[in-house]
């Protein structure tokens, strides 16, 4: 009888503990510390399809010139960042970017060397619920090619000439801003030169791979 009683009270005690932990679970929130989210896949697909996920190098350059409100984020390593970065850009790693608490509507432009890293970061931030995130199309490679070293081909159409004139102006602006050492608006062949990392050096890159 006594044994039955003690086993009964143990059962009840265990049931009480389970019930208590269950009730507490109601208020404990998610066990994933905000790293688990729900995303609207269709919405993302639509944004990507309508090219609403990126800005062109020209658009970015104009926005920087006009001092529009936005944050430019560089996702490369600190050595690459020290050797050159887009003016106003801020260096952040992928994880730092995730931990950032920026206002939901703030415009963010992400870039990496070729664009893959930036596109991955774009997915993460979209999943986090940020509305106004873009990548730089073609990454820093495109920035160098289009803004810093624009080239006019001999068979260029009139539209291309207009675009070139515009880019040349941008090139001069950003060249002055960030290239005290060397300014080059012609198609210079790549000449690797050892330069101390503190100085700004830019070389035209032939390939657009990597990230």
């Amino acid at each position: 009888m006594i044994r039955q009683l003690t086993s009964l009270s143990l059962n009840k005690w265990l049931a009480l503990a389970a019930g208590g932990l269950g009730v507490l679970a109601l208020f404990a929130g998610s066990p994933f510390q905000g790293h688990r989210v729900t995303i609207d896949l269709k919405d993302l697909a639509r944004t990507i399809e309508s090219e609403g996920d990126h800005v062109e190098a020209d658009q970015l350059a104009e926005r920087i010139m006009l001092k529009s409100r936005m944050r430019v984020i560089d996702l490369r390593d600190s050595i690459s960042f020290a050797s050159y970065h887009i003016p106003t850009a801020q260096l952040l790693s992928m994880e730092e970017l995730l931990e950032e608490r920026s206002p939901k509507e703030e415009m963010l432009v992400l870039y990496s060397e070729g664009g893959i890293h930036a596109a991955q970061a774009w997915m993460l931030l979209k999943a986090k619920g940020l509305a106004n995130v873009y990548t730089l199309k073609g990454g820093l490679n495109a920035w160098k090619e289009d803004i810093l070293f624009p080239v006019l081909s001999e068979t260029a159409s009139p539209e291309e000439r207009v675009l070139f004139a515009k880019r040349k102006a941008l090139s001069e602006y950003f060249g002055r801003e960030s290239l005290p050492v060397r300014r080059d608006t012609t198609a210079a062949p790549a000449k690797p030169r050892p330069v101390p990392p503190a100085k700004v050096v830019l070389e035209r890159e032939k390939t657009r791979d990597g990230c």
């Binding site: 049931a15 389970a18 019930g19 932990l21 269950g22 009730v23 679970a25 109601l26 208020f27 404990a28 929130g29 998610s30 066990p31």
Partner: peptide, 18 residues
């Protein structure tokens, strides 16, 4: 459903079941 709520409901179901 939120995780915590699911846990709570299953515990409730278990206790009622017992």
């Amino acid at each position: 459903l939120p995780f915590g709520l699911t846990i709570f409901l299953i515990v409730l179901l278990a206790l009622a079941g017992f």
